[in-house]
Write a protein that binds this DNA or RNA. Structure first.
Lengths: 186, 186
DNA sequence: GTCTATATTGTGATAGAC
DNA sequence: GTCTATCACAATATAGAC
């Protein structure tokens, strides 16, 4: 997809996306129906098709908006004094504030064609930088953050687990100085 | 849920679960309909309700079977010479062999009531042991493995990413000797 | 334990008037 | 850009015969 995202959306389109987003966070993915979106805007479902060709396009715009927003939050955290810890906090916080959108963004295959150019790289850049430019370590750190977040949202940790301590443990390990090409015994 | 799982299932029930599982892996969650399950067994959909009260119960049994199987794979890996690396391999492999079931097991809130007793603990035990008994580090390692797996299954890594290297990087960091947590003086 | 027949509900989407 | 009216379809689930 070429260009940014804001200049491609009419005001009505952003209203529709916002309505879909409210429904998503309030009632999960199955609450996001064309009827419900329309009702929330005080119109009828068929009118939505004047703004989006189909539901898939609407969902893609929803996910894209999430990525843009997330990238902004990460960029701010990346300018902190302890970038990796700040990024971890920002990552977790953003997901907890938009749990269903986070799940929608991460749990299904990413359709890169429908994402504005550069957004994916913009979200990743602060993490790579915080990992000293090592892309493998950056992916490991990203996976750790996503794993913690995803398992927390899915209620997979036991009720008495100290998640703050688990986050600290992982961050401590991942930001420890590491050799250039460590080989693990396979 | 009390007791194991096998002794609670009639032969016909396991046939139904197997059919559901085949459909799941072949076509994703939306391919698992009562009609499709029945058709695969050569019967009609309403007959399924003689074996399971509703679709939710059938899905719960499907997920439970996955956990039992996963726990067995992890137990075997935990007996290896390098348990953490072996567990990582076993974790990734199991998920890649049953991607949709893995997603079904991890991406929705876990209903512990419908899971056989001890299965969750059985799957976790080898990881805790491989982390020297530190539960925070074990949760971090689990989150890392789940994050890598989930992001890979969702096609979220760039096409040129070296995932083996990312796995190594994370495992190396997480199994490095770590100081006692700042808060615990024991 | 399986069948036929059907109820009920909900979905995305289109046609065409205004 | 919105409406009314409607299509086409698929889903879970139940009733009752055999």
């Amino acid at each position: 997809m070429a260009g940014g995202v804001a200049e491609l959306l009419t005001g009505r389109m952003t209203e529709i996306i916002d309505a879909a987003r409210d429904l998503l966070e309030a009632g999960g993915p199955e609450a996001v129906t064309m009827r419900a979106i329309a009702e929330r805007l005080g119109i009828k479902a068929p009118s939505l098709y004047k703004h989006f060709p189909d539901k898939e396009a609407l969902e893609a715009a929803l996910v894209a908006a999430g990525y843009v927003e997330q990238a902004e939050a990460f960029a701010a955290a990346g300018r902190s004094r302890n970038p990796l810890a700040a990024l971890a906090r920002a990552y977790r916080r953003w997901a907890m504030e938009h749990p269903h959108l986070y799940m929608l963004m991460t749990n299904r295959p990413l359709e890169r064609d429908r994402l504005p150019d550069g957004v994916e790289a913009a979200a990743a850049a602060p993490i790579v930088k915080a990992c000293g430019g090592n892309p493998d370590r950056a992916r490991a750190a990203w996976a750790f953050a996503h794993g913690m977040t995803s398992l927390e949202l899915a209620n997979r940790f036991p009720p008495d687990a100290d998640l703050d301590a688990a986050w600290r443990s992982g961050i401590d390990a991942l930001q420890a100085p590491h050799a250039t090409q460590p080989r693990s015994t396979t």
